[in-house]
Design a protein around this nucleic acid. Structure first.
Lengths: 344, 344
DNA sequence: TTGAAAGCGCTAACAA
DNA sequence: TTGTTAGCGCTTTCAA
């Protein structure tokens, strides 16, 4: 029955509303009222309570609050991506920052979780079901992704960044990969290139297959399947490999659409090593407008992805769903302008 | 008093232990026992409960569990870094992955949080105090960082990645920036360079000032302050700027230690644009062994940072503290080998 | 304007 | 081996 707040081993126990109430000489209910900024608290009471809070160093226990409120003021951002890809992806950082900014403004905590292994996915699913997260933003989900299923089962407010085909009518924010690919390919044509190829990454993802579709759209009847080289990832080394294959198959190639800036950088290095000068002999364009683009020599023409806006918009969607202002379905497509530099 | 689990608007309420108990015809205590794998449960009871759990789709509420257990099985990884830097940092992703792997194995959830603005810091401090996080890993803290203070005040189990001078005897995992800088500088000397300069980033951080210290160590009496150019960040553009300044001040420079690979890449481009051939005219080395290093032409000699190991070791430290196996003080320094390629 | 009391979903001590 | 009960720290009726 000790009234000082130390535990068995003499460590200071954390203060609770009860301690504050005792200290201020009021009831817990009143303390709770000032904590939540509710009306009907006298000035004296409020002042006494505020002083008591400062004195005992009270910080509300969120688990307790979450339990009673059935909400946690935290939303998760899930990246489902095996190891290496996550580290290399030029967009994830910006998406994260954009989402964080929006949530921060609404006083929500962003909790970022990576699903790397199968075990991660299970633990994550349990975690999400646990009520410690009010909603989720899902980045880079694939078709058939177990995370997607888990979230649907839970009925958690969610927004996808990107648009895998099997998310039903869930909310999503995406860019128009197909349209942008079409546009940039067209400008490649307009500058007089006649043998235009593509290094096409990640055809198992919506982003990858959409970019290819846009490429095909633009070329129309001039499309030659011989000039597209599929590669697994949006990586520099896949860019090198893809370009080598293309060069061998079509030495007269004079334009290439690389499905990412990293791929373009790899392709460019191979091209230059083979003695081609860019953009004179061959024009090359990328996708992402990441730091790779400016590192290239000549700097890369590419498609700008508003990655931070994607994160922000997804966060806002979840927030609206939480407020009940949004049924949480339907998508939003963000503009992504082509930026012309010197590589084509 | 309705016994079906639907709320006022007909939405399905989440099942609780009580629902499971009713369904299985046992008490909540028994359900709790099987949930936590405790002994003294009959096979019949266990089977009935497992069936009931599956039937009603029960998932434990973690807020409730956290409340009573005073722990949440989640640990936070905090990155305190303004915007742009976070996105560009080549190590953070790997640190995150390493930490996640270690925590995942121990069935802990990693929750990653960025502190970007002052407001973020406040919200974060409140969040951490809330009992939803059992411990933290802090990445890229600076001296005098308010986050550091908040954590110390809270007495949360913590481990730092890196070693700001003011963390007292808190646990940390770091690399020997000074030793590695010394070593790589020495090899630059051994290959016969006589006018060796340094582009020194982030002197306000331990990593930056330690690298400079190592550089000075190695050069000894041959150190010439005229040949070090301080720049704010570990970035490509600061590498360019730094190199330009150095070149102007000392056109006869024949060796440069860039404090990161990105800096080295910028420096290399400036050097080559000025007609210097690498490594013949000037040798250059970097730090990080990031993707920049291989993209340079010639590929960059650099210091390999075991970033994922840093994350893993920090996570393990926090886990040990949580188990009471470790007082949570003292540091661990990881090896970071020099990797020699062709730039020096 | 305030206090008392019930209860969020769970675990753990105690009895049976 | 099991059920009962008392909380964990908070919010929120309901009365006063």
């Amino acid at each position: 029955m000790s009234s000082d707040r130390t535990d068995v081993i003499g460590r200071r126990r954390r203060a609770t509303v009860k301690d504050v109430a005792n200290e201020a000489g009021v009831s817990r209910g009143t303390v709770s009222r000032v904590l939540n900024g509710q009306p009907y608290v006298s000035d004296e009471a409020r002042e006494a309570i505020e002083a008591a809070i400062a004195k005992v160093g009270f910080v509300p226990n969120r688990a307790a609050r979450s339990l009673v409120m059935q909400s946690s003021q935290a939303i998760g951002l899930i990246v489902h991506e095996p190891h290496s890809l996550f580290v290399e992806d030029p967009n994830i950082g910006s998406i994260l920052l954009g989402a964080n900014a929006a949530l921060s403004e609404a006083d929500y905590q962003l909790s970022f979780m990576i699903a790397d292994t199968t075990r991660d996915i299970e633990r994550l699913a349990r975690y999400l079901s646990g009520g410690l997260i009010d909603g989720v933003i899902i980045v880079s989900a694939r078709v058939g992704d177990p995370i997607t299923r888990a979230i649907a089962d839970l009925g958690l407010p969610a927004a996808f960044v990107g648009h895998p085909r099997d998310i039903g009518d869930a909310a999503y924010v995406a860019i128009d990969n197909r349209g942008a690919a079409r546009e940039i390919t067209r400008r490649l044509m307009d500058t007089g290139r006649s043998r235009i190829g593509m290094i096409a990454s990640a055809l198992d993802r919506d982003s990858g297959s959409d970019r290819l579709a846009g490429f095909v759209d633009a070329l129309g009847s001039r499309f030659d399947p011989q000039l597209v080289e599929p590669v697994p990832l949006y990586s520099y080394s896949d860019g090198q490999a893809g370009m080598r294959a293309l060069l061998e198959r079509a030495p007269d190639i004079d334009g290439v659409f690389a499905s990412s800036d990293a791929v373009a950088a790899g392709a460019m290095d191979v091209l230059q090593a083979a003695g081609r000068v860019i953009p004179d002999d061959v024009g090359i364009v990328g996708f992402d407008d990441s730091s790779w683009a400016l590192r290239c020599d000549p700097p890369l023409s590419t498609v700008h992805q508003p990655a931070d806006e994607l994160g922000r918009a997804a966060a806002e969607s979840v927030l609206r769903q939480l407020r009940g202002e949004d049924p949480g379905n339907g998508g939003r497509v963000l503009d992504c302008p082509v930026v012309w530099r010197d590589s084509a």
